[in-house]
Amino acid sequence: MKECYLGVDIGSISTKGVIIDEDNNIITSSYIWTEGNPTLAVRKLLNILKNKLPKEYILKGIGTTGSARKLIGLMLDANIVKNEITAHAIGTLTFHPDARTILEIGGQDSKIILLKNGIITNYAMNTLCAAGTGSFLSSQAKRLGIEVEEFGDYALKSKNPVKIAARCTVFAESDLVHKAGVGYPKEDIIAGLCKSIVLNYLNNVGKGKKIVKPIIFQGGVSKNKGVVKYFKEILKEDIIVDENGHLMGALGVAILAKKNKIGKTYSLEMKDLKFITKAFECHRCSNNCELLKIYKNDTLVDSWGSKCGKY
């Protein structure tokens, strides 16, 4: 029997799962949509992984990351729960030990991680709003009537990208509607949109950060060839897009699960597990905390959101 480790990255848009062996090789992986229901997505994910995993492996560790890491960590009894910044850096460093800059644009957030000699030296994450992230791209794709997966190909066709206000999603959208209204071709608008995402990212998240090569571009948006093209053009450097780029967070946390294993054996079987969350608002004081109670097999395992610590 060989040992293996599972890393789950539950993002706002997609849920990623990776199973690695003792030498950090990916045995199997899966990528599905979260669709606003992380617990259901993880159940589906584990089902897929269970069918894909060869029988000789036993699961010795589970790690979770991403925005629903705490909840899923509790659900799966994970031995490690890590934030996505650390997970991404560790995952990337296994494949690119010499990486100096990680650009990451995901569904709701974007971040930049600077590395030196294999450790994180600085990072930044977008604040306040999700302008220039994947969710913006997909909503605009819907508006233009094309699939988000085709976005990159359209952008590459354009020779003359239109200028689109990059500062704010709302302004970008009205700019886009206007440009479409006056008759600009679709590919020019899409190319302009891709360019505006790059500019927004560099002005916002990348502000004041020195971008040194090798540069690695990750996250769902890295699959968009248009955005990659404009990153190359504007930074005047080569950009590495890993084919497993979208899995790096899950991979990183799988490696962390391996490092922090506690000797327990896990199962991918989820059928018997009853996992429910109940939300309510506490009115004992004017804080009106939104509380979340988490029940696993009908017993209360945790509750979150209380400011005073009563729950």
Binding site: I85, I119, I120, M125
Partner: peptide
């Protein structure tokens, strides 16, 4: 209107980073 989760994520990453820098 700042989200508390966002603050916690950034703080955790900051702490991890400082610890990593220390170890090397």
């Amino acid at each position: 209107a700042t989200s508390e989760t966002g603050v916690i994520t950034r703080l955790e990453a900051f702490y991890d980073m400082l610890e990593m820098r220390r170890r090397k």
